[in-house]
Design a protein around this nucleic acid. Structure first.
Lengths: 215, 215
DNA sequence: GTCAATATTTTTGTATACAATATTGTTATT
DNA sequence: AATAACAATATTGTATACAAAAATATTGAC
């Protein structure tokens, strides 16, 4: 996998940014990072480049790379895009999912249900991700799947916060049911719309949360 | 912009790959490239990393980076994804485009029409791209817009080939009209479907072309 | 004291040097 | 002759060195 230290460092840095160790706009000091990680500047620079290309940081030539945390607006945009990507996956999946794929999806959904019943938010969080990934896979479009996975991963830290919303889990499960039914029936439009809504709601909730924090 | 040589080299390399200077699976030799570009390995390595992250090449740790040209299947997948991204843009644009945006879109479409009448395929190619970009912009979703632009750019070399299809230009213009009408009417579903079809057709044509080449 | 011009220091970007790993070629054994 | 073990070579990944540019500090003029 990541045989290079640069990759490990990139992952670490991404993690640190999400964890809030760096403030928005902060310059990522190559030398300090090199010291912290106990390596030279070379692998640090490679890692930084990866952060830049994944959108976590921004590079200003001959000036440095700076942490770039998405604000509320961009976050909503990303959730909207995620909703559309998932809608697209659902559209294809409705026509292309194999019986085996559907079976796996149902199984995955059951595990979500289990987690809800067990009131285990952390497990629901994990199982829910897998549920969605099954649908990406079901699109039978490797490129789309990869893009969906990329954005899902990018939004991960922001989805996490929302699990606390009261009643969200139950509603989420109801939506899952609708999605599974539509996929099984091969109803592309219905699956697509259900998924779009299911994901878009998350973005909207996030906005609400931010708004409520402003008070 | 690109104050770094690494960026210039990355663009050059991408260009060279598309132009067919490298065969699929070929290893991109850091040392030879460094000699060719008259620089050291360092900026070459940075450029290669960019190619890898943009999907033009693949990296196998401790082994090298290799050109990775998409085959027919992946290309179709990419066109499908483009179609869905544009459909998403159209969906948002139908609700969000300003009068000014619509006006610009119409203007852009007129320039497409001009190019068709002038039988100027190259100009149509350019104007058509702008037309689509107006819609991305119209989605009023910067993130989605960026993603759409990225894939549009990635598919550029493959779209180029298709202009030669007889009658495609006229049909394409008819589809543009339908798209503009739907967007102006604020009909999200219609705009979305029209765009999806408009783009998806390109992927299918491409498949046909490849199939015909096999004979 | 404030501001501008210059000098100093930092920091980025690139080149080179070195270490670790993979690849290739050679030799020896069966 | 084929194959396995080992040596030689080449290539990647990392560290260090240096050059160019930017940021900061210092000095001087008003």
């Amino acid at each position: 996998m990541d045989a290079k230290r640069a990759d490990i460092i990139a992952d670490s840095l991404e993690e640190l940014v999400f964890k809030g160790e760096f403030s928005d706009g902060q310059r990522l000091d190559e030398i300090k990072l090199a010291e912290n990680f106990g390596v030279s500047r070379t692998p640090i620079r490679e890692a930084l480049q990866r952060l830049v290309l994944s959108g976590v940081a921004e590079q200003i030539p001959r000036r440095g790379v700076f942490v770039r945390k998405p604000g509320p607006v961009e976050l909503l945009e990303m959730f909207e895009t995620m909703a559309e990507l998932e809608a697209a996956c659902g559209r294809f999946a409705a026509h292309r999912m194999t019986d085996q794929g559907i079976a796996q999806l149902k199984q995955s959904n059951c595990r979500c249900q289990d987690a809800v019943l067990a009131q285990d938010a952390a497990r629901y969080y994990t199982e829910n991700e897998i549920f969605h990934q099954e649908i990406y896979r079901g699109s039978a479009n490797g490129y789309l799947e990869k893009e969906a996975l990329r954005l899902q991963s990018r939004l991960r830290p922001y989805r996490r916060v929302q699990l606390r919303f009261r009643g969200r889990l139950a509603q989420s499960m109801a939506e899952h049911e609708k999605i599974v039914t539509a996929l099984e029936a091969g109803d592309a439009n219905c699956a697509s719309n259900a998924l779009r809504e299911h994901v878009a709601v998350q973005g909207e909730r996030f906005q609400q949360m931010i708004a409520s924090l402003k008070d």
